[in-house]
Simulated assay, not measured.
Amino acid sequence: MSATLSQHVDNWYALFHVQLMRLALRWGYGDDESRDLVQQFFLDLLQKNLEPGTIDNPQAYLTSAFSRRLIDHYRSARVQKKREVLQPGNTYEPSVLESLVQVQSNEELMAAIRAAYKRLPARCRRVIQLKYYEGLTTEQIAERTGLHTRTVYNNLYEGIKAMRAELHKTHPRLKFAAVFSLLPLL
């Protein structure tokens, strides 16, 4: 590596690293990852047998080369993600049934679900009960309770949203589908 190449790369880094960081940020990379990509790009430039005198417009050259680097990085990350998905046993996601068994055995969680359900307004509890445990449709619930169908829908939505938010605070990995199957046990 000649001293002139090193000097040129240092000069280019001083002039253009902010612009390349912005380019990486526009591509959706985070601050730290963008910084790492730019630094690695300039380190790789030092490794190349580049003739700095042959580059007429360093800004255009660096921008194009860095854009190609970002494309290559994106493609390799996408391929890596596909490999991880295709490899069985790498990540284990329990089924809803397994989550249900685990939830039932956790008394603290059962108490949290019970408390979240009891804190719901009476209308929301009633509508959730009719929908998920008696299997009624929104229209049937409206007929039985005398509420408008839109009100029934809104009460369901608000009840589910409130329970999900409250339980997410204490148990962020909980599968919410398991919660509805547990409510009759409470």
Score class of each variant (00 low, 15 high):
G30K: 11
D31C: 03
D32I: 00
S34V: 01
S34A: 07
D36L: 14
L37F: 06
V38M: 12
V38E: 14
V38F: 11
Q39M: 13
Q40R: 11
F41K: 07
L43H: 03
L43Y: 06
L43E: 11
L45E: 07
L46C: 08
Q47M: 04
K48A: 11
K48Q: 14
N49R: 03
G53V: 07
G53Q: 13
I55G: 11
D56R: 09
D56G: 14
N57S: 14
Q59D: 10
Y61T: 10
Y61D: 07
L62Y: 14
T63K: 12
S64H: 15
S64A: 15
A65Q: 05
S67N: 12
R69C: 12
R69A: 14
R69M: 12
I71M: 04
I71K: 07
H73M: 11
Y74K: 11
Y74M: 09
A77C: 07
R78K: 13
R78V: 07
R78F: 15
Q80E: 09
K81V: 05
K82Y: 02
K82W: 08
K82I: 04
R83S: 05
R83D: 01
E84P: 04
E84K: 11
V85M: 08
L86I: 00
L86K: 07
P88I: 09
P88E: 10
P88D: 01
G89V: 11
T91F: 12
E93F: 14
P94E: 13
V96S: 09
V96P: 07
V96M: 03
L97P: 00
L100W: 09
L100D: 01
V101N: 02
Q102V: 03
Q102K: 07
Q102I: 01
V103W: 02
V103K: 03
S105H: 10
S105F: 03
N106F: 14
E108M: 12
M110W: 01
M110I: 13
A111C: 01
A112M: 02
I113Y: 01
I113M: 02
R114I: 05
R114M: 06
A115Y: 04
R119M: 05
R119W: 00
R119G: 12
L120N: 02
L120K: 01
L120F: 02
P121T: 08
A122V: 15
R123A: 05
R123D: 10
C124Y: 00
R126T: 11
R126H: 10
V127R: 05
I128E: 11
Y132M: 08
E134N: 09
E134S: 04
G135E: 12
G135W: 15
G135Y: 14
L136N: 04
L136Y: 13
L136D: 03
E139M: 03
Q140E: 07
Q140F: 01
I141H: 06
A142C: 00
E143D: 07
R144P: 00
R144G: 01
T145E: 14
G146V: 11
L147P: 00
L147M: 13
T151Y: 08
V152I: 13
V152Y: 07
L156G: 01
G159I: 09
G159N: 06
I160M: 10
K161S: 13
A162R: 14
A162F: 04
R164Q: 12
A165K: 00
A165Q: 10
E166W: 05
E166I: 02
L167R: 08
L167F: 13
L167Y: 05
H168E: 03
T170D: 06
H171G: 09
P172G: 15
P172V: 15
L174M: 06
K175V: 15
A177T: 02
